[in-house]
């Protein structure tokens, strides 16, 4: 809904906006938000939150960089980095599932921890802070910057994520369990669902998502830095919540998150085209977030219908 409104709005405002080419290539700038936000949707649906994802992006970036600089093949370095990030997610998940510390506190701690580890890795390999490690081989740089079948690779990646995670959340037993745990953790336990495993696994997915997102960023800038993505966490959560996922758990869709990520990204792009600065867009995104939540509250019945409609289109789409 937002997206369509926005397309029309900016289309009227600036004729150049509806140039498909422009639109599609603008996605490169924010694809990483969507890639991290999609798995984050799972965490928030279970009623949790993971603020360490931004740090995980940096961790992923610097791991790839240091391993590659250390002589490892770039693709092996990439896989190792993803494994490291999934393990980081596992640590989050273990603490959240097996202690009664709130997810926000746990991931706040690991946010510092992972950012710290990334710094230690980078410091230990004496990669200078600002420039990072650069000079990656072309195939790696092409991950984020290349074009396949006329579309930027980042769009393919987002589509791929939408399909895989959309199917996982909306069509599989695992996805169903994620919802049930988020709606009522105790009832899920009494129904024989392995609640701890479900909760833990969503954090692993979020870690993996952060890892992939970090790699895209590294490839996009062609430079590995420990602080890549340090500011990403708030836009990521914004995208998830704006996409209709309830911060209280139990509701949300992957499609919604994808649309919201694109809305936020397009908004940046569109507002800049129509002569606004990127600073002004953060104001608009912030206001939009608040207004979207307020609207949902006041129009609960209307929105309920919209939700059901939305859900069925998701199923059809994937």
């Amino acid at each position: 809904m937002f997206l369509v409104g926005e397309l029309i709005f900016f289309g009227l405002l600036t004729p150049g906006f509806l140039n498909i080419q422009n639109l599609l290539f603008s996605m490169n700038d924010f694809a990483y938000i969507g890639l991290a936000a999609i798995p984050m949707t799972f965490v928030i649906i279970t009623g949790g939150i993971d603020v360490s994802v931004g740090s995980i992006m940096g961790l992923s970036s610097i791991t790839v960089g240091v391993l590659w600089a250390g002589g490892l093949h770039i693709w092996i370095a990439l896989i190792v980095a993803l494994i490291v990030c999934t393990l980081a997610g596992l640590l989050n998940g273990l603490i959240v599932a097996f202690t009664d510390v709130q997810p926000l506190v746990v991931t706040l701690g690991t946010m510092f921890l992972f950012a710290g580890i990334a710094l230690v890795i980078s410091g230990g390999s004496s990669a200078t802070g600002y420039e990072g490690i650069s000079g990656f081989p072309n195939p790696f740089v092409q991950i984020a910057n290349g074009i396949t079948l006329g579309l930027p690779n980042s769009i393919w990646l987002i589509l791929f994520f939408l399909l895989i995670f959309g199917a996982l959340l909306h069509l599989t037993k695992y996805g169903r369990n994620v919802y049930l745990v988020g709606i009522n953790m105790k009832a899920a336990k009494y129904s024989g669902i392995a609640t701890k495993w479900i909760v833990m696994s969503t954090y692993m997915l979020a870690g993996l998502g952060g890892g992939i997102s970090g790699i895209i960023l590294t490839s996009y800038f062609s430079s590995a830095r420990s602080d890549l993505g340090a500011q990403a966490i708030l836009p990521v959560i914004t995208a998830v919540v704006l996409g209709g996922t309830s911060i209280l758990g139990g509701r949300g869709t992957v499609l919604g998150t994808v649309i919201a990520s694109i809305v936020v990204g397009m908004m940046n792009y569109g507002l800049q085209l129509s002569g606004m600065t990127s600073e002004q867009t953060t104001i608009i995104v912030g206001v939009m977030l608040i207004v979207a939540v307020v609207m949902r509250r006041f129009n609960i019945n209307y929105v309920k219908k919209w939700f059901i409609g939305n859900r069925s289109t998701t199923t059809k789409g994937s």
């Binding site: 867009t281 953060t282 995104v285 912030g286 939540v293």
Partner: peptide, 11 residues
Amino acid sequence: MTLGMLGVVRG
């Protein structure tokens, strides 16, 4: 609420 405000105020 405060996440939205964070963006607004930063802007």
